[in-house]
Computed example of a mutant assay.
Amino acid sequence: MTVRIENHLCYFTLDDNGQEQSLPATRVTILTDNDKAMSCVDLAGKRIYITEAEADKLTVEGATDSRNHVKAAAPGSVI
């Protein structure tokens, strides 16, 4: 899991060493990486990819949901 939430404060794991950055949920904006068809958050100059479940939890805590729906362009795509 790349994000944990405690008392409306969101902790994002930035690297494999476990370095974290925290922000109040109200200062987090959830985006969509259209090329990867994944939700993400931009933090400290890095794009942190999160699951849809994590994105939903963040929105419940007050994060801004700026995701868009990605549609498949090729027949038979899983998205």
Score class of each variant (00 low, 15 high):
Met1Gln: 13
Met1Leu: 10
Thr2Pro: 15
Thr2Ala: 15
Thr2Val: 15
Val3Ile: 15
Arg4Cys: 02
Ile5Cys: 05
Ile5His: 04
Asn7Ile: 00
Asn7Val: 00
His8Cys: 08
His8Lys: 14
Leu9Asp: 08
Cys10Arg: 01
Cys10Lys: 03
Cys10Asp: 06
Cys10Gln: 01
Tyr11Glu: 09
Phe12Arg: 01
Phe12Thr: 00
Phe12Ile: 01
Phe12Leu: 02
Thr13Leu: 04
Thr13Lys: 10
Leu14Val: 14
Leu14Gly: 09
Asp15Gly: 08
Asp16Val: 09
Asp16Pro: 01
Asp16Gln: 13
Asp16Arg: 09
Asp16Ile: 05
Asn17Phe: 15
Asn17Val: 09
Gly18Met: 04
Gly18Trp: 01
Gln19Phe: 08
Gln19Leu: 12
Gln19Val: 11
Glu20Leu: 00
Glu20Asn: 00
Glu20Thr: 05
Glu20Asp: 00
Glu20Met: 07
Ser22Ala: 05
Leu23Pro: 01
Pro24Trp: 02
Pro24Gly: 02
Pro24Thr: 01
Pro24Glu: 02
Ala25Arg: 06
Ala25Glu: 08
Ala25Lys: 12
Ala25Asn: 13
Thr26His: 13
Thr26Gln: 10
Thr26Ser: 13
Thr26Arg: 14
Thr26Phe: 13
Arg27Thr: 10
Thr29Ala: 11
Thr29Val: 13
Ile30Gln: 03
Leu31Trp: 11
Leu31Pro: 05
Leu31Asp: 11
Thr32Ile: 01
Asp33Ala: 02
Asn34Asp: 09
Asp35Gly: 02
Asp35Ala: 12
Asp35Lys: 06
Lys36Gln: 15
Lys36Thr: 11
Lys36Cys: 12
Ala37Asp: 13
Met38Arg: 12
Met38Val: 00
Ser39Cys: 12
Ser39Gly: 12
Cys40Val: 00
Cys40Lys: 07
Val41Trp: 04
Val41Leu: 05
Val41Glu: 04
Val41Pro: 00
Asp42Cys: 09
Asp42Met: 13
Asp42His: 13
Gly45Ser: 07
Arg47His: 07
Ile48His: 08
Ile48Glu: 09
Tyr49Asn: 07
Tyr49Gly: 07
Tyr49Met: 07
Ile50Gly: 11
Ile50Glu: 06
Ile50Cys: 05
Glu52Asn: 13
Ala53Tyr: 06
Ala53Gly: 05
Glu54Trp: 00
Glu54Gln: 13
Glu54Cys: 08
Ala55Thr: 01
Ala55Pro: 01
Asp56Cys: 13
Asp56Tyr: 10
Asp56Met: 13
Lys57Asp: 15
Lys57Thr: 11
Leu58Cys: 05
Leu58Trp: 03
Leu58Pro: 07
Leu58Val: 07
Thr59Ala: 14
Thr59Leu: 04
Thr59Gly: 06
Val60Thr: 11
Ala63Val: 09
Ala63Trp: 05
Ala63Phe: 02
Thr64Trp: 00
Thr64Gln: 03
Asp65Gly: 14
Arg67Gln: 02
Arg67Ile: 07
Arg67His: 04
Asn68Pro: 03
His69Leu: 04
Val70Gln: 09
Val70Ser: 01
Lys71Thr: 08
Ala73His: 15
Pro75Asn: 11
Pro75Thr: 10
Pro75Gln: 09
Gly76Pro: 03
Ser77Asn: 11
Ser77Tyr: 09
Ser77His: 12
Ser77Asp: 12
Val78Gln: 11
Ile79Gln: 10
